[in-house]
Write a protein that binds this DNA or RNA. Sequence first.
DNA 1: TTTTGAGTTGTTCGA
DNA 2: GTCGAACAACTCAAA
Length: 451
Amino acid sequence: MTRSILWFRRDLRLHDHPALNAAVEEAGADGVVPLFVVEPKLWEDAGDSRRRWLAANLRSLDEACNGRLTVRMGEPEKVLAQVSREQKAATVHISRETTPHGRRRDERVRKSLGQDARLTETGTPYAIGPGVILNGSGTPYKVFTPFSRAWRDHGWPAPAERPKRIHWVDAGSDDDAVRKITEASTGHLDFEVGEDAAMDRWADFLDGPVDSYGTDRDRPAVDGTSRLSPYLKLGVLHPRTLLADLARKRSDGAGTYRTEIAWREFYADVLWHNPRSSWHDLRDALPTMQYDDPSDAVEAWKAGRTGYPIVDAGMRQLLETGWMHNRLRMITASFLTKDLHVWWPVGARHFMDHLVDGDLASNNHGWQWVAGTGTDASPYFRVFNPVTQGQKFDPDGAYVRRWVPELRHLSGKKTHEPWSTDGGYEHDYPQRIVDHAEERNEALHRYEQAR
DNA sequence: TTTTGAGTTGTTCGA
DNA sequence: GTCGAACAACTCAAA
């Protein structure tokens, strides 16, 4: 008897899944138990969007496993020990997890399995596992560009073939876990659920939009980004699959898109080497920086009522859909940190609570990049001007009009400055909560003091 | 070891 | 409207 368990975590797919292949190869006719463990704390902390997205994709994965997906609720070290005993499984197969929580959890599981079963890691959610790419001195890169060159030169394996036959074994789900997933999976989602839908979206993006990605990705009113982040978050798609297809494209846009994948890999690598950086400043460059406590202004920011159209449009897109265009993530993050002078984890937490694609490494290091505490030792005087950004990247105001109905009577550059337009406020759009020019100076002043 | 060039995504000012 | 320089000085990576 060599039945094996495939413990799904951030790898909810059947294509290009090395750990699945390892499980199938080992188990053969004795079968593979496809298992998902609902961890109570992670489940509660995920936020409605991400919980719904996870639940819906689990139901899709269950279908792909012929209805045999086993879902259990509880602490993984207990659940895995129990299921492996029940099934007399020799091996629990996983994709290696590299987040702080995942690393601690998997170590606990390894201990709890003891002599009864092995925990075998095959692959990671990344093209190149975090920790692999090192510079000439044998230490981790701290700057993106040299990392991305080394990453590209290192290369990655071709996608793994999906096993031809898989003998799935249902080990029996908890009623409680099934009920939680069923309940959570109802309601609207802005993204098509499941692996087939992810592949379709990728094929559509690859068949055209990717070629103009270099410019269109900065236009929030245009559907010019891949919108694959929710799938990558749960491993419904693996970046290796994307990279293999991109290698057949010659366009500049495809190159830019590959660089974005490199950013995802870079931030995972940074987190691997600096687990504390998820919620603490990566660089202690601003030790005495003065921050303001969260106040009504932060609530206005969260609600999309700052009086700055492009900021409000982004924040409302987040609340309404669980996703925000990347250009808006920068603009809104700059507003919280530079215009409201609030410490970045406040904003990072809000994003994690609402983003369907909320990923600790990418989200929190992205926030630190904006706040000036992250990997980029670049000028602290980089303060996004919400009006200039709006006029540059949403020139006719279409994005603002889509998310801020109070401004639908405006068009063109005026959409971004209702205060200088007759009738700009006739539909009760809020007045600006701060003066950007003043707060920019205040931010520069505080940075100067902190250095 | 020392030196040198470079660093995602910006803004403002003045020519 | 467009373009280049200045912002101020630091860390990193590699020669």
